[in-house]
Amino acid sequence: MTATSPAPAPAAAAFDDGAAVRVRGLVKRYGDRTVVDGVDLDVRRGEVFALLGPNGAGKTTTVEVLEGVRRRDGGDVTVLGEDPARGGRAWRGRLGVVGQSTGSGNALTVRETLDHFARYHAAPVPTAELLADVGLTDAARTRVDRLSGGQRRRLEVALGVQGRPELLFLDEPTTGMDPVARRQFWTLVEGLRARGTTVLLTTHYLDEAAHLADRVGVISAGRLVEVAAPADLGAELRRVATVRWLEHGEYREVTTPEPAAVLRDLVAASPTGDVPGLTVTRPDLEDVYLQLVAAAEGETR
């Protein structure tokens, strides 16, 4: 298997401090359904990487393999220098995990929960600081089973960062949060990034990926279809612009890779030298994302 896969970096790659996560040809099947189908992925140390994709695309499965809680059916995976399938306690201590599911909670208060789990870590973040960071200071004395869904997500996030992880996995962390809580969460992630924490997050929200991530990977139907900085995502698709103008009281539209040429012709053809109602638009992140996902899904059908 190693012999057939293209390996650009030889032996030294294993010691490359630049990669927090390195995945080659990851495959995961449930029965005869292949949910992750040959994913290659690199996450550099210190970056925030967002995995973006529709429901059922394989985001969570991929992340769970990296967290070492799910076995893989094929491929090579290295997380912080170790194979997650064999990672021990010391390795887990360097990871932070915020899973997708939020338990129904129990009879402990928020503060009791944080104080309890602090005892699992060698150097935990003080509870008061955590509470402030996730905006749960006012809810510290509330029982977890009486928190709202969004508050419970915030508690999950607090538990994920409590052990000062080098690498933090966030699986759809802001699902169920209100806009204020989401912004607060973004600030928290920015703070972690500034302190050098590597973050791998999955999300449905394009604005979240654009705001937080250094790089975005679009995953669809079990394949990673593109990896780029948010602004460069779908560079091919973005090169195409839509030119729109008013002619004889009706809007006309041309989609072209060379909008400048179209504009030149329009201006030249106009008796007054003016083009009413003229706009030139390029596809935004959402358009690009939808096209990438649609293309990938079309391929597998």
Binding site: D17, G18, R44, R45, G46, R89, A90, G93, R94, R119, Y120, H121, A122, A123, R164, E166, R195, G196, T197
Partner: peptide
């Protein structure tokens, strides 16, 4: 890569996690 590594403030060596008994 070197620049990132240099500014990294996450401790490279961390204390051992608490014991199973603790």
């Amino acid at each position: 890569t070197a620049a990132r590594t240099a500014t990294r403030t996450v401790p490279a060596t961390r204390p051992a996690p608490p014991s199973a008994a603790a």
